[in-house]
């Protein structure tokens, strides 16, 4: 009976040869890339030994320089808040001007190119260029994160605007409403909630990134972190890392609360 069923219907699940070939190709690629990068098991094991020594030096975390730590954390938060405020402020018009269903193409393409430029470079690269332009300190970090915010919010906001229903716009235009009224009464009500969502996400992202821009001298806790690395001051390093993770978790908690308010 069972043999009969098997003959009539074949196996319950067909072998997917394409999927198997895909997995095989993945493995072959991993082997090739590991060879290209000179990544080997022996080096990995050797690193694990170093890692154990490294972790041992990090325990217990050294919070004795907490005043420096607190001052740096405050500067980090300040950079994130100022950069978010200006980034959100600028990305609103940039997003509107880059939306292809509102503007003619000769306006949208330079703004789309600007957004693409802001997005394609990692914040650290902007940070390096801004440190050169405005010198060491939090200003370079703020400018960096403003550009990063425009890139992220601008892109998503533009996409949100391009998805809106055009009927309210048509109604307002038919009634002879001026351009700004069309934007305020037909476009913004449809996308403002999503804009606030993107903005609160970006505030979070800016806080994460502001802990890092200091590595290239653009202010915040990153500079102290990098210095602790270079001086092999690993127990202070552990304290810095713990406070960064705590700060990010706190901000994640706050931003979930804020999202709930705006739902």
């Amino acid at each position: 009976m069972t043999a009969d069923t098997a003959k009539n219907f074949g196996p319950a699940f067909k072998t997917n040869w394409w999927a198997r070939a895909g997995w095989l190709a993945g493995f072959l690629y991993a082997a090739y890339a590991a060879n290209y990068l000179d990544v080997s098991w022996a080096r990995f094991l050797q690193g694990l030994g170093n890692g154990a020594a490294f972790l041992a030096e990090m325990v217990p975390p050294n919070f004795s320089r907490w005043e420096l730590l607190a001052a740096n954390l405050i500067e980090t938060v300040e950079i994130a808040i100022i950069a978010s405020a200006f980034g959100i402020l600028f990305s609103l018009p940039v997003g509107l001007l880059a939306a292809r269903n509102l503007m003619p193409s000769w306006i949208t393409w330079p703004f789309r190119a600007f957004i693409a430029l802001c997005r394609s470079f990692h914040p650290v690269i902007f940070a390096i260029l801004f440190v050169k332009a405005v010198g060491f300190g939090p200003l370079a970090g703020i400018l960096t994160l403003i550009f990063a915010s425009i890139g992220f919010i601008g892109k998503l906001f533009t996409e949100a605007i391009e998805e809106i229903s055009l009927k309210p716009l048509e109604a307002l235009r038919a009634a002879g409403a001026p351009f700004m009224s069309v934007i305020i009464y037909a476009v913004l009500p449809q996308v403002l909630n999503r804009f606030i969502g993107f903005s609160s996400y970006q505030l979070d992202a800016n806080l994460r990134n502001s802990t890092m821009v200091g590595i290239v001298g653009a202010g915040g806790i990153g500079g102290t972190l990098f210095a602790a690395f270079q001086r092999f001051d690993y127990d202070f390093l552990a304290a810095i890392l713990i406070s960064i993770i705590a700060l990010v978790m706190l901000s994640e908690f706050i931003s979930t609360r804020i999202k709930r308010v705006f739902q």
Binding site: L37, D38, V39, R43, F44, G47, L48, N50, G51, F54, V124, R208, N209, T211, M212, I215, G222, L225, F226, F229, L241, I244, I245, V248, M249, E252
Partner: peptide, 25 residues
């Protein structure tokens, strides 16, 4: 998952450079 996301990639890189030495590994 949260710890992986809260530590920035450059900080992760610093940590692993300390562990494995400079290089693509």
């Amino acid at each position: 998952l949260v710890s992986s996301r809260s530590v920035n990639s450059l900080v992760w890189a610093l940590l692993f450079v300390a562990v494995f030495g400079p290089g693509p590994l």
